[in-house]
Write a protein that binds this DNA or RNA. Sequence first.
DNA 1: TATTGTTATACTCTATAACTATA
DNA 2: TATAGTTATAGAGTATAACAATA
Lengths: 159, 159
Amino acid sequence: MRGRTRKAPTEPVSPGDPVQFGPLEHWLGFNLRMAQAAAFQAFSRLSSDIGVQPGRFATLTLIAANPGITQTTLSRANGRDKSTLTPLVSDLVRRGLIRRTRDRKDRRTYRLTLTPAGHRLLDALTDCAQEHERNLDRVVGSDRALLLRLLRKIAAELE
Amino acid sequence: MRGRTRKAPTEPVSPGDPVQFGPLEHWLGFNLRMAQAAAFQAFSRLSSDIGVQPGRFATLTLIAANPGITQTTLSRANGRDKSTLTPLVSDLVRRGLIRRTRDRKDRRTYRLTLTPAGHRLLDALTDCAQEHERNLDRVVGSDRALLLRLLRKIAAELE
DNA sequence: TATTGTTATACTCTATAACTATA
DNA sequence: TATAGTTATAGAGTATAACAATA
């Protein structure tokens, strides 16, 4: 098996030479990574003047869709440890985008909601996301629904 | 537009409650990220006993497919700065997986090749990747070719 | 005892800028 | 001057473990 994709050692690859991607080219895993990276960068460019990193977008959207959500629930919803949320939440509070209020019944938990400023910023980010989606639609055309279904299936079944 | 996805503030979301994903659910960008993360984690699990991080895989494959490639060419091939390659290459050399040899004509550049141990390790990783691809194939079924084409198109056209 | 959130710490991946050695 | 690679440094993003407050 070894050597399948090797060029002869007498043809070293120099800057400017075309690069062979070998078996990577045919793998879904690799192309999923490349497509995701390209899409994320494109969205970052679109939202660069909003003043909040694109990584905050999902967090703000989840708080908007689940007002009063707790930090632990929120961290589970996007599959990260609760400790990763502490600095993120502090940052969003400091910017005046979200509000943390203690639960009356259970004084261990905080309830998260968006402030009016948070809603305005999320609306701006959502506009970017819609423009981004229109760009993606232009690329995938009529296969959009199928692509969405396949991506969801991958996320669900590879748990 | 604001409030489209908000629940009434009288129903706070507690741990255990179902979480609303709001508009995220319908966006290709978000689902691309979720699918990629799930696929990467699945591959990490499969390759966990090989003793090299899955992120090294693309680097090793590119060196195998382009023996004698220089660090600058390699860094461009996967879209990262050349400085990010220095510690990565040092690590792979220290593990005896790749060889760095100075070019005779241009003594500024190094030529990278896999060692026999590097080829053996890449073969093992490739076996994992093939198993991973079979798992993905089982998820996407007969839509594999279309999915691959769409992912490539996204990566290419969103540059 | 168990859970919520915080803190301390560390690791990966990435970037920019200034540097060296060669060209 | 320009290029290949290194170094120093920094910033996201993530994780684990130990902890305080509360249940």
